[in-house]
Amino acid sequence: MKSIEQQTGWDGPPRLFALVETSELLKVQPELADELGLAAGDGLTAVDQGELPDEDIGALLPGIVWPESVAGCALAMVRITLPPEVEDQIPDEGDAVAWAAAHPLHEELKIVVGVVRDGARHAVLRIRRHEDELLSADDLVPDLAEALAQTLLPDE
């Protein structure tokens, strides 16, 4: 069994969260107020959706549709990046992710992107080698924010 740190830390899988109005959550589950230290005026509460299927996030998100009771959603994940100068060295065959992770110039990024139904978006990014620094902006990861926003559109 994985520890909470393994599930949510640098080596954990991507995590998807429903963002719900705390006041609405407490109407349905009032015991959470004491258990989690929540109050009705606390804005949004993140509800972990459990382990995601083992597939590409880009392929998974288009199949998600949230009910109206969900005010927004957030995704936390770790990604590996390489500088542009080594892009032509990436092998065509084999496990490119493992190759990138083993490359001496790789960077590990922890990314959290959240969106709400009113259109607001925000992202934070942390580089593993610089854990004390946090980058934060509305448009830091625009493609991912847009993919998450699409999950909030009414099902047609």
Rank of each mutant, 00 (worst) to 15 (best):
K2V: 01
I4T: 11
I4Y: 08
Q6K: 11
P13S: 13
P13G: 14
R15K: 09
L16I: 04
A18V: 07
A18S: 15
K27Q: 10
V28R: 10
P30T: 05
E31R: 05
A33Q: 12
D34V: 04
D42A: 08
V47L: 15
E51T: 08
P53D: 12
D54S: 08
D54I: 07
E55F: 01
I57Y: 02
G58W: 02
L60V: 01
L60M: 13
P62D: 09
V65A: 14
W66E: 04
P67F: 08
G72V: 03
C73D: 10
A74W: 06
L75N: 01
R79I: 14
T81E: 08
L82V: 06
L82W: 01
L82N: 07
P83I: 06
V86Y: 05
V86T: 12
D88R: 10
D88A: 15
D88K: 09
I90E: 07
P91W: 02
D92K: 12
G94W: 06
A98N: 07
W99A: 14
W99R: 13
A100C: 10
A100Y: 02
A100D: 12
L109K: 10
I111E: 14
V112T: 13
V113L: 05
R117V: 04
R117P: 09
D118Q: 08
G119K: 00
G119R: 01
V124Q: 13
R129G: 15
E131Q: 12
L134H: 12
L134G: 11
L135F: 14
A137W: 05
D143G: 11
D143W: 03
A147N: 06
A149N: 03
A149M: 14
A149R: 04
Q150D: 15
L152W: 04
D155R: 13
D155Y: 04
